[in-house]
Every structure is written in structure tokens, then in C-alpha cells.
Design a protein around this nucleic acid. Sequence first.
DNA 1: GGTAACTGGGTTTTT
DNA 2: CCCAGTTACC
Length: 674
Amino acid sequence: MTEQAGVLDVLNDDQRRAATHQGGPLLILAGAGTGKTGTLVARAAWLREQGMQPSRILLLTFTRRAADDMLARAQPPDSSAAERIFGGTFHAVAHRIIRAHAEAFALPPEFTVIDPADAADVMDTLRDANGLVGTTAGRRTPRAATCAEIYSRCVSTSTQLAEVVATGYPWCVPFVEQLAGVFTGFVGYKRRHGLVDFDDLLLLWRAALADAAAGPALRGLFDAVLVDEYQDVNAVQAEIVRLLRPAGDGLTCVGDDAQAIYAFRGADPSHLRALASSYADLSVIRLSRNYRSRRGVLGLANVIRPQFDGLELSLSAERGEGHRPQLVRCHDEATQAREICVRILADHEAGLRFQDQAVLVRAAHHSDLLEIELAARGIPYVKYGGLRFTEAAHVKDFLAAARVVANPADDLAWFRLLRLHEGVGPVLARRVIETLQIAEPQPFARWPDAEAMLPHRQAAAVGVTVQQLMLAAEAGSTAERATTILAALHDPLAARYADVAVRFADLERLADAAAASPSLHDALVQLALDPPLSASDLAGKPRLDDDYLIISTMHSAKGLEWPVVHLPQLVDGAVPSDMALTTPAGLEEEQRLFYVAVTRARDRLYLYAPLRMHHHRLAADDRHSYAQLTRFLDGAAQAHCEVTQASPPRPVLRPAAPLAASVDRDLASLWGTG
DNA sequence: GGTAACTGGGTTTTT
DNA sequence: CCCAGTTACC
């Protein structure tokens, strides 16, 4: 009890009011760096102190890291199930509930959760049949990944296909009918094969909550629902929350509409703003005392922060004055890379670890040139965001093999696994899958039929793999299964990839991580819902003596902080990104993203603005609003930053006469035509 | 008929 | 770097 009193003691007045709020629904509007996590943890502790059973408290987050972090702080590590708060990401919680009642959802108990890449693969197989072939009538048809994006956008925002395409994907307007066909096929395919995608997890949970009989039972599981990062919910998640607490009692939502940066996956801060109209008795408590950044940084943050009627908030500095952000105008990208390195090294020599500094970029490729410069100067770094570990080709190969073992009816996995072998392309792979009749029990038993059908070379290679996977399927422990699968892949991978040693080492870590799960199925779900960022992510924390700079996308940096933050590429087209400017809402989101990036800095913030090199074509209207934002940011920067001009990399020559012309003249004189 | 190897154009952010 | 289209090989 004294320990829990301690949790409340460290809170400020606003935080304590939020943690101990009684009665109706509560919205905690928490600006960046205002101690929102601690407040939410304290609220959970307070609810327990009031006699609420921990297992009847539901905590919903968007990342597993956030869930683990809060659950670890809110409860003793070795507590029993009843003593434990029920928490996780929306998707993970949905999965637990659906898995526990699979039969009610007409799903096999071991249903497969497919990630967005798998969804795109399924759509790819449906494109031809629905008239989305390569180039149609001179127009490029949407790629499989784009189809999957559009599908998910429709589902997660509960919006008609035609509208989603018209507003977000105008170049796909001629293909709306074909897309509808693909989507119908996609849904049918998933249902036939017992597959569930990320959107389905939420849709199924919502359907159960809305059901006249199942709804009350599921609702009755919890007395309190705590939702973190509420500005990031999509339409389906908002509806799930509403169905969990229709009257609003016991509901606590924490969020900041100025930090909504996930519109591209269907999130919309208007759900947070709508809370007040959904619940007449909603209490709003603002957390505005910032314990992260110096006043210099917050001066800039507060002018960037968009304000919304009724939810205005301005951050106050609790950590003192500090330096004003420094805006470095650079001649070009190379100058920018040099300027960043110079400052990183200077701070390092002044005693700061590399880990205390981060470079945050809008798009993963914005750090390409910088990475070359860092390597040249021997500055170690780790990059977050961008390509994920599970997207690497060899990892997908391993996961496909594991899925074949876990669920032999998974033809997507079979397709990838078979094509891994030399000489086996789409056509042969399809034939093998048909011959094996993988949807029927015991497909491995029909391998001799498939073997007879294949050319000798291919039959031999695939045969070895299939035999091994049969062994894996019969193996007792998860660990044994994982190592057998790995062994099965050795030869095909060695034939395919030049750098087998590196890739195989990755897979050994993956197999080790999978071995820790109770079953292969659980390991696969875990990996789909929470893909590790890198191979080292799997191996636990890096060694303490390793010191490296962090490069991260602005999106991946959300919720994190560093003493020193560098923000490069602050130039039209990069920040704000011209990909985001097809709608006015996209422009607003770019501003919020910039706000998130700026508020990551504790002590020092460096902004770098190189001259713009190239430019995508933009409609006149877009260009207009674009310039407005740029002017706005420029104005903010002028008023709240120190501005310096970085000198160009080398002196600019100003020859008295045209040099190229003189060379040409000399050349011409060699063959006498000059 | 089917696969591999090459080429040229487009590239945001991720539970 | 991924995908679509082309070409050359079995």
C-alpha cells in the first residue's frame, strides 16, 4: 500500500486529479513530455487500491513496447492471472479474445494471422482475374501493395471504396470496379482458408461486442478500460471502445490530438475530439507541465502545435531555460551531412554518449547520404524504422516454412516455400500445391504424386525440403521444430543468396526466439503482430558498452526522447513530404509530425534546411497550401531559432571564360575541325 | 511451356 | 530497393 501511495506522491496536481478521477468518462489531454505514462500507471494503481480486481482492468495501447512498459510498472512481475491487468495492443487483445472463442467466430482453433505483406500477396493472385493487368489502357494499374492499402483504408475508416479512391488515390479512379472485384475475392479467400488479417482482428472483436448475446458477456469482463494514445484510433477501434463502455463509466482515454500522425493507417484525431459529444459527462484534464524539454525547445514547439477549439493546450517548461533551437541553412545535402557529423562529434567530445543523440528523418531514405558520412568518420549508428526484419527475403522464407509446418493448408506459405527452389516458378509451384491437395488432411502424404510430376532436378531439391519439414511437423518441442525447419532451408537458401552465412545467423536467432514460445503457432502470431525491427532486437538488449547514434523515422520516434535531436531535410517535398499533400488533411498531419519530432529533444535541437534539389510535380492548389505551411514553419523558425548559414563544401569557382567550351575547342583542333 | 536473368522506372510513414 | 516487362535459355 505504501508503494502505491508512492506512485501518487510523485505526481503533480493535474496528474493526481487524473489518476484519482471518480465517476464518469475521463479524457486526459496530455501534451508531449507531460508524464502521461506515469499518470496512466498511477491511475491503474489507484483503481486497484479502490478494490478493483486487476484482471478486470483492460489496458489498450498501440505498440507492444508501450503495453509491456506500462504493465511492468503497474503490477508485480510474478503476479497470478487474477492479479494481472489485462493489457496489450488492440490487435493482440483482439487476438486473445478471438483465439479463446475461435469456434464462435467460425475459425479453426489454429487460424493464421496474416500480415499486410501476406495480404498483398493474396491480392496479387487476384489481380489478373479482375482485370488489373500490368498496364491497362496506357495507365499503370495499382500494385498489389497499393490494393492492400486501399482495402485497409476502406475498412479501418468505414468508408466507401469510391470515396477512399477519389480522395486518397485519385490515380486509381479508373480501376474502382476492378478493385471491388479483387476485394470481394480477397475476403472470400481469407474465409475459405481460415486466414485473419490485422483489420479482421478488430472487425471480429467489434462484431462480437455488438452482438446481442455475445456483447454483454464480453463487456462484462472489464470494469475499467484505459486507452493510451487515443488520437491514433481508427473508426473500428473507436467503436470497440464505445461498445466496451457504452455509458462511459470506467473509461479513461489518454491522448493528444496534436500528435496524431497515423492517418495513413486509418487513424483520425476527430475520434478523440468526438469524445465530448459521445459522452455528455466527459471530464477533460489537461497535462501541460512539460518535464522533458528546455524552454528554448518548447518555444518553437508551442508555435508549431496546432490548436483545436475546446482542446487548446500550451506546454510550460519545468526544466529551465536552455538553448534556443539552431536552424542551420545548408548549401546542399552533402553540406548538411557534414554539419550534422561535426555537431555530433563536438558533443561526443564534450562527454555526451552517441546514444544521447538522435537524427530523426521523415522517410527512411533521407539519411542515405548521412549514413555514408557517418561511416566515413567512424561514427557507429543504429537505424530504426524503414525496412523491418521480417520483411527481409530470407526471414520471409523461414516464416513460410514454419507456417507450412504449423498449418499445412496455408497455400500462401507453400507457394513461397516451393518457389525458393531453383527451377520452380509460379506455374510449377501452383501444380505442386494442387497435387498435394493441401486443404485436405495429411498433404505431406501425397508428396510422391507431386514428386512424380516435377522434372528430376526440381523433384530432388524440393523432396529434401519436404522430407525435413515432415520431420519438423512430427517433432516434439517447439525448439526441435524450429531447428529442423532451419535445417530444411539450408540448401535452398545457400543456392539462392550470396551471403548465406549472415542470413543464416539471423535465422538462428529467429529460431531461438521462436523456441521460447509454447507452440509454433504462438510464435508465428507473435512475430506477425509485433515484428522485430532487427535481428539484434530478437537477441535482447545490446551490450551496455556499445555506444551508437540513433537514426530513426519521426514516426518510430514517437514517445521517445533524447538530450540532443537533429532534424535534417527540412525542405519542401521532404518535410513536409510531397507524398502527403494530396489532401488538405495530409498537410495538417505533416505539421503534427513536425511537432512530434521537435518535442523529442530534451536539451538541444538542431534543424537543417538544405536547398531543395528536385521536386515532384504538384497541382497548383496543392502547391499553394504547401507554400503556406513552408512559410509558416519558416516564420516560426526565424522567431524561435538561432539561424546560421553553413558554408558550401568548397569555394565556388567563377571562371573568367567558359571552361567546357575551351576544352571542346582544344579537342576540335586535334582533328582539325576547329 | 516455363524459368531465370536483365533492364528501366518509381520509391512515406506502420499496428 | 521492388516490380513489370522483355529476352534468352532449358
